[in-house]
Amino acid sequence: MLFRVDPGSSVPLGDQIAASVRGAIADGTVAAGERLPAARELAGSLGVNVHTVLRGYQRLKEEGLIELRRGRGAVVTGTASPARARLGETAERLIAEARKLGLSDEEIVRVVRVGLAGR
């Protein structure tokens, strides 16, 4: 799996790492059950702080794409599918668009809630 980070970008490095994994799951390069590199290894590879990598992994865990287990490291969950990962990417785009319009977090959540209420 390919990780790309741009230290010059305004996007936090941890989020960039999460985006790499999400992208790899979305395009099918990484399948369920696959183990991600240990945080320390990946930090060394990319020249970033271990905590930065862990922040990215934590984010993926909250999205339900990976499981973090002590001693076993980060494993792509069985429920993580390319479609699920693309959904996360879509959410990222929604947030970016909304921020560009100057919406607050509350207002972004309200946009989603209004959409859901319409169903």
Binding site: M1, L2, F3, R4, D6, P7, G8, R35, P37
Partner: peptide, 15 residues
């Protein structure tokens, strides 16, 4: 070759 703009870092890992 990878399309990697200057300043960007890439790493690849697989088992």
């Amino acid at each position: 070759r990878l399309d990697l703009p200057a300043g960007m870092t890439a790493g690849w890992s697989r088992t």
